[in-house]
């Protein structure tokens, strides 16, 4: 295939074509809040760089849907569309202990958790968690999908997709720490 502007490496294409995504916030549900505001998200995206947000259309802060078995944090809902969900104000009183792996993940992000299922977020650790873990992770999914020019199908098997997203999230966390 002949080389063209479409076959340029992604960083070069991103520098030429990336548009900054729309970031907007909807009012959180009563008693809840958006730990990272829209301007926090914008700043984080600028820090991550255009190669990461290339192809991203929007990041929306929206009220979380009710789910019995998990606390939703964020989601890549379609090509280039990420939503971050509002959260209860800390401390989170879950009423029971978290599974060990989830507890370790939150502890690594700066949370404190006791045996009664109370998860507290000292300082701005919850904001950093939403940006460095949740947003960065969803951006990892977006990059993989966008890199493979996919819109309606998966770029990789779910486990590999998650691993790839987490690898990118780890790199991005280092940029905002």
């Amino acid at each position: 295939m002949a080389r063209s502007v479409r076959t340029d490496p992604r960083p070069i294409r991103a520098a030429r074509r990336a548009k900054f995504p729309v970031v907007r916030a909807r009012r959180p549900a009563r008693g809840r809040h958006h730990p990272a505001s829209a301007s926090d998200v914008r700043n984080a995206l600028k820090t991550f760089g255009e190669e990461i947000y290339y192809g991203l259309v929007s990041v929306e802060l929206v009220p979380a849907p009710f789910e019995r078995t998990q606390l939703p944090l964020g989601r890549l809902i379609g090509p280039g569309r990420i939503v971050l969900y509002d959260q209860a104000r800390p401390p989170w009183r879950l009423g029971f202990e978290l599974p060990a792996d989830e507890r370790e993940r939150l502890l690594a992000a700066g949370a404190r958790s006791d045996a009664d299922g109370v998860v507290s977020w000292p300082g701005d650790s919850l904001r950093r968690f939403m940006l460095g873990y949740v947003l960065a992770h969803e951006l990892g999914h977006h990059v993989l999908q966008h890199k493979r020019r996919l819109r309606g199908e998966r770029g990789a098997r779910t486990n590999e997709h998650e691993s790839y997203a987490e690898a990118i999230a780890t790199k991005l966390r280092a940029r905002i720490d």
Binding site: T69, L71, L73, I77, L98, P99, G152
Partner: peptide
């Protein structure tokens, strides 16, 4: 439209 793949981040709780 064709349903796009979604990738969610969540804290998994213990099963009910």
């Amino acid at each position: 439209q064709a349903r796009p793949p979604t990738f969610a981040a969540a804290v998994k709780l213990r099963s009910p």
